[in-house]
Design a binder for these strands. Structure first.
Lengths: 213, 213
DNA sequence: ACCTGAACACCGTTCAAGT
DNA sequence: ACCTGAACACCGTTCAAGT
């Protein structure tokens, strides 16, 4: 396949996806029809179906392309072996999310849709998987500090537990903690979408008080 | 209007709503058509439209009728002037929710729909309002214990702050804390719906650890 | 190969006609 | 007054025909 054509196809897919995102943010998932995207993009129905096999595949593309907040800072922190506490990781994620200007109501609508569209559910799990991996990586140093002072180099060949597919205690702690961080982020998104904006630090303080910190 | 007719109408509305809930739990919000509810209920299209003016009004009725966990225990605790901490109130709510057997995926779908249907959004806010009121009431004694030892009787005529529409410090604390309790419950529901079931106490322990308890 | 737009099956809602 | 079910406008998707 010639490079130009591939690049052209990718650009067209992006052009359609961007038009779709504009209409989605304006009208919501339920009230966005293919006809709306046709109008917004200036293309025809058939043109869209020659780039996406159906509406769900277009939605999957939009999720993967635009709905994941930038994880670079999070990943870099893990690389630098800085001690990032789970609370700091959560705060960083929510701040990045707020600054990205992504509509929480749109995210909540996609979650709802994902409950009923297996293709969309898979894409959300893939997106969430990358997020959890980045979080697990970022809080790795913290987890190793928690589970005894020994800090094995990440690339060190390891003994029986890993060989038999089990995680070391630090890895297990980091992975379990990552799920809770994601849960708290989901709480922030759902609460904000339903009841209106709330300051990130106020949310952290409020939830801490509830749990007894 | 004769009593019998009113009772009959109410019973019919309930019969339709129960049929709708069965199909909703089976197929999800997006994949449930009026035709499905017609089939499940054994009535005709027109019969359903003679009891609900449209699909959203039927959805509102289902939400108000079946989707609110029982709050009785929570309200009774506030009445008895027991000290219920926010964490205990959250735990009680989540346990009641789990025991009620309500599908978290269905709740998440309704939240998504509510983002785009004003009628459904209003009903969710009304439902959430009752929940927050019950929580505020239940943690009232705790809030009063927090904000200085003085515990004014709830029915005592009060001084300037309340008269001018402001809340006393205990009431303000209870109200703000109630929002955070709801946010943590939303996090549990969204996380469970997307990633699968999780034990309530494990969720509480995990989120506490993230926030630094 | 990409694109057009009329055609198709199905959706929520309405309404003349029955009881 | 409650109910029936055919009819209507609109949706996602397909496909013969164009370039």
């Amino acid at each position: 396949m010639p490079k130009v054509t591939d690049a052209y196809r990718e650009a067209r897919r992006d052009e359609i996806a961007r038009a779709a995102l504009r209409v989605l943010e304006r009208n919501g998932v339920r009230d966005t029809s293919i006809a709306d995207i046709v109008e917004e993009s200036g293309l025809s129905t058939g043109a869209i179906y020659s780039h996406f096999s159906n509406k769900v595949e277009l939605a999957r593309y939009v999720v993967g392309r635009f709905l994941l907040p930038r994880l670079d800072a999070l990943e870099a922190a893990g690389d630098r072996d800085e001690i990032v506490t789970p609370r700091q990781a959560l705060r960083g994620m929510l701040t990045a999310f707020s600054e990205a200007g992504l509509s929480t109501t749109l995210v909540l609508q996609f979650w709802g849709e994902a409950m009923v569209e297996p293709g969309l559910h898979d894409e959300m799990l893939r997106t969430a998987g990358r997020l959890r991996a980045a979080l697990t990586h970022a809080i790795g140093p913290w987890a190793r500090a928690q589970t005894g002072g020994a800090v094995p180099a990440p690339d060190a060949a390891s003994a029986a537990p890993e060989a038999s597919g089990e995680l070391g205690p630090a890895e297990a702690l980091a992975a379990a903690t990552a799920r809770s961080i994601v849960a708290l982020a989901q709480g922030y998104i759902a609460n904000t979408a339903v009841f209106g904006p709330r300051d990130v630090d106020e949310y952290l303080a409020g939830t801490s008080a509830v749990l007894g910190c």
